[in-house]
Structures are given as C-alpha cells and as structure tokens.
Amino acid sequence: MKRSSLAAACLLAASAAQAAADAEFAVRWDPAEGGPATIEAVAEALRLPEGKRKSFEVRYFSIVQPADLPPGASAIARERLSGGQMESMYKLRSPVAFPSQGPRADWRCPFKVDAKRQKEVDIGWSAEGVTKTNHSRSCEADGRIADLLPARFMAKPLDCTSSMLRMSSRGIKIERWSLPGGRQAFEVSTNGKDTGAERKAFASGVVQPLIARGARPLQQSKTQLGSAC
C-alpha cells in the first residue's frame, strides 16, 4: 500500500472510531451454572491485577412508563447506596435506536435537579458468541428517587434489594451480585466505542476466556436480575 493510501486508511479508521457511539460491553453469568465463582477467580482468568473495590446496595423501582417509548423499550429507576451516599438513576432502554432527529431526539432527564446524562449502546454476549444490542439514555444524580422524580412517575420501591461488590482493574469492572432469593451473578464490563474492533477485542479478551472457564452467559439484564423479588 502506498504511503498516501495508508495515511488515508488510517484517517478513515480514526474518523469512524470517533463517530462511533459510546458503548458498554458486558457479559454476565450465574456461578451456580458454571464459571468463576469469586472475584479473584475472574481476575485470574482475565490476567488482571488486584484493583480498587467498592460495595453497593441496590434497589429498583416500579414507575409509570412513558407513553411515547419505542416498541419493546422500558424506563428504569434505581437507587444505589455506597459509603452512606445515595445515587439515583433514571434510564430508558430500547432494542431499537432512539430518534436522532425530530422532537424526541432532544431527550431531557426528568430529575428535578441537574444530572449527569449519558447516551450509549449496551452490548451483551450469549454463550454462542452472539451479541445483543440495546440503546440507552440515562441520567444520574445524588439523592433519593422520591426526591428526584416528579410525582407523576408514581415511583414505588420494589420489596427487595441486591448487594454488589465491584473491583475495577485496568479499565475492566468485575461485579459480584448477591440477588434476591439467594441467587448470585457476576458481570464483567468495560466502556468504549461501538466499533467492530472493540467488539472483537472484548469477545477475545474477556468473553472467550470466561467461557473457557465454564461461564454460561446470561441473557437477563442487571435490572431484570435485581428486580426479581
């Protein structure tokens, strides 16, 4: 390849990566069905050093669903307590992309205070290596759902909580979830851009080593797992 052609190819690849959507790559499994059953075992499988740990208590809420959501989409509300500090999240999750133009493209967080907003693509894996993609819009703020969401959402806490321990190492998050009913689940995730190269990197560097250790990826989201009261 000529030098000019190589430079053009590199520029095109860089432009494509820059234009790609923010993404979270994740894989989940139930250790009772196989796979690493401790954070240490997960880190060993992925050749990760010990990282910073943090524990959380998580509760999900039932809320009134917006009438204008795309088919199959849902609204989610949850509180997360860590070190005495409460953080709340409101999220819209959809199997199809949200409008990029028109009146519904400029989404506003319903919280009563300024909140950190995020748009990303959530990419999960199956045992067969097939990916499942969802699109999300979310916002987070300090405080309780009861104080942040307007009354019209009729937010009601579910009758169960989950505890979660997270270890972060080299940009990878390992989470051990203790779920309602005594069930456990693990999730390994990282953030990046939704490109073919980053999907392949997560599959080869994270998903395949875990499957090789017996993990059977779950299809349920953390919301579904944590809401099974």
Rank of each mutant, 00 (worst) to 15 (best):
Q65P: 11
D114A: 11
P49Q: 07
K52Q: 05
I63S: 04
F56G: 02
R104T: 07
A67P: 03
A26R: 10
A45Y: 06
A105H: 11
Q85D: 10
F98S: 07
V27L: 04
Q65I: 09
L48K: 06
F61A: 01
P103I: 03
E79H: 05
V27D: 06
D114K: 14
V58H: 00
A45P: 04
S74R: 15
F61W: 12
S62I: 10
I39D: 06
E57S: 15
A26S: 13
V42E: 03
E40S: 14
A20S: 12
L69I: 10
E40M: 02
T38H: 04
E40L: 07
K112A: 14
P36S: 06
E50R: 14
A75D: 06
F98W: 15
Y90I: 04
Y90M: 08
A41H: 07
I63V: 15
A75N: 08
V96N: 03
E33Y: 09
D30Q: 08
V64I: 15
E33D: 13
F111A: 05
F25G: 01
G84R: 01
K52M: 03
A41F: 11
P66Q: 08
G72Q: 06
I39P: 11
E50G: 13
F111V: 01
E24L: 09
P66R: 02
G102C: 03
A73F: 10
D114W: 06
F56Y: 14
P103D: 10
R28E: 01
A20K: 09
A32Q: 14
R78S: 05
I76W: 06
E44A: 15
I39W: 02
A37R: 08
R78C: 05
G84Q: 00
V58L: 05
V42S: 05
G35N: 04
F56E: 09
F25C: 01
K54P: 00
K54N: 13
A21T: 04
R93H: 08
A21W: 09
E87I: 12
M89I: 05
P31M: 02
S94W: 12
F56D: 09
S62Q: 13
Y60D: 03
L46N: 01
A45D: 08
V113Y: 12
A105D: 09
A97V: 06
A43I: 07
A115W: 01
A26T: 00
K54S: 12
S94V: 02
E24F: 09
A23F: 06
E40A: 15
A21R: 10
G35W: 10
W107Y: 05
D106V: 12
R93A: 13
A75K: 07
Y60H: 13
V58Q: 00
G84Y: 02
T38N: 06
A77R: 07
K52R: 10
P103R: 07
S94H: 13
K91L: 10
Q101R: 15
P49T: 10
L48R: 03
R80I: 09
P99Y: 07
D106K: 14
C109Y: 02
G34R: 10
D106Q: 10
L81Q: 03
L81W: 05
F98H: 04
A20Q: 07
D68P: 00
K52A: 11
R59G: 07
D22A: 15
L92I: 14
R47S: 15
G84T: 05
M89L: 12
F25W: 08
E57C: 12
G34S: 11
